[in-house]
């Protein structure tokens, strides 16, 4: 072998490169990891850091220019009744959207993971993913039309004789409005629709990882299906629900387009950020508002961890 290779033509450059990388796996690892780490570290974390820094500056009320000296004054702007109301509204909507998404996604994911055959599963995958293939704005506008006062949904409800209950629901303070399209209910419906795939897929993946033999073992040991669900299936799917809720919760916290197009005129966090960095050109305050979702997510994740949501990982 060695004599044969000695007499043969010298190995090509590519061959020698392969050998170098094969012998030094660490070098290969570095080559593979440096680009994504640069992206994550410098561009992503860097911009996040510069955002954080911005939030500790302030704007001179008179000139409208940013004053580059560290201060906590900007953060004081978060602690007035209006701002706290926005934070409360955004966070509670995000929580409600997450709960509804989980409630809708779980049975769907359960069917996909446990009962659907290969064909049915493919159909369900496409059905869940299909909305993600079309333009986000188009879908939100479509909902705006569906939920409008003269829209399809109101028409259907009217023909079902459900006008009175709808009007009654719409008079509810805080979540009601002139029509579904201009109420918090409408905002929530659209949020649930838009983020649902992000809840279905992780739950489905978690449920798929529960071997059938575990369910059989539980029933073999005397557990009725209800108990098997509560003691085996649910605990093992919690990491999936937690992963999905991270998506739905954080995406709702940060979104500014849906509440802008569908819902009452009362703003969400994202809209405030958009306003302050744009028309109001108060970048420090926009940055301070942008920090809020990060803090809420940090609290959310640590609470989930403490409750054992990731124990079964």
């Amino acid at each position: 072998m060695s004599s044969a290779s000695a007499s043969a033509a010298p190995p090509s450059l590519l061959h020698r490169l392969s050998t170098v990388l094969y012998v030094r796996p660490k070098l290969l690892l570095i080559l593979l990891l440096v680009p994504p780490l640069l992206w994550l570290g410098v561009i992503y974390l860097g911009s996040l850091f510069s955002l954080l820094v911005q939030s500790f500056f302030s704007v001179d009320d008179f000139t409208g220019k940013v004053v580059y000296s560290p201060t906590l004054a900007t953060y004081a702007g978060l602690f007035n009744e209006t701002s706290l109301g926005v934070i409360r509204r955004t966070a509670s909507t995000a929580a409600v959207v997450t709960l509804i998404c989980a409630a809708i996604a779980f049975p769907l994911a359960y069917y996909m993971a446990r009962y659907a055959g290969p064909r049915a599963k493919a159909v369900f995958y496409v059905a869940v993913m299909l909305p993600l293939w079309s333009n986000y704005l188009v879908r939100v506008y479509a909902w705006k039309l569906i939920l409008a006062k003269e829209g399809a949904l109101t028409w259907v409800l009217a023909h079902l004789g459900l006008e009175a209950p709808l009007d009654w629901v719409l008079t509810t303070p805080n979540i009601g409005g002139a029509s579904l399209g201009t109420s918090m209910i409408g905002t929530t419906v659209v949020f649930v629709y838009i983020w649902l795939p992000y809840m279905v897929l992780p739950i489905q993946a978690a449920l798929e990882r529960v071997p059938r033999s575990l369910i059989e073992a539980s029933s073999d040991l005397g557990a009725h299906p209800r108990e098997t669900f509560r003691r085996v299936i649910l605990p093992l799917s919690i990491p999936g629900v937690a992963a999905g809720s991270i998506f739905t919760f954080s995406l709702t916290l940060g979104d500014y387009i849906i509440p802008n197009l569908v819902g009452s005129s009362r703003p969400f966090l994202g809209q405030l950020v958009y306003q302050y960095q744009g028309t109001a050109s108060n970048l420090p305050l926009a940055a301070a508002f942008a920090v809020v979702p990060i803090v809420i997510m940090a609290i959310y994740l640590s609470a989930a961890k403490r409750l054992g949501a990731f124990d079964a990982l």
């Binding site: 575990l214 059989e216 073992a217 085996v232 605990p235 124990d311 079964a312």
Partner: peptide, 9 residues
């Protein structure tokens, strides 16, 4: 069970 089917959690 052949794969033991112990509850991992």
């Amino acid at each position: 069970f052949q794969d033991y089917a112990l509850f991992p959690h």
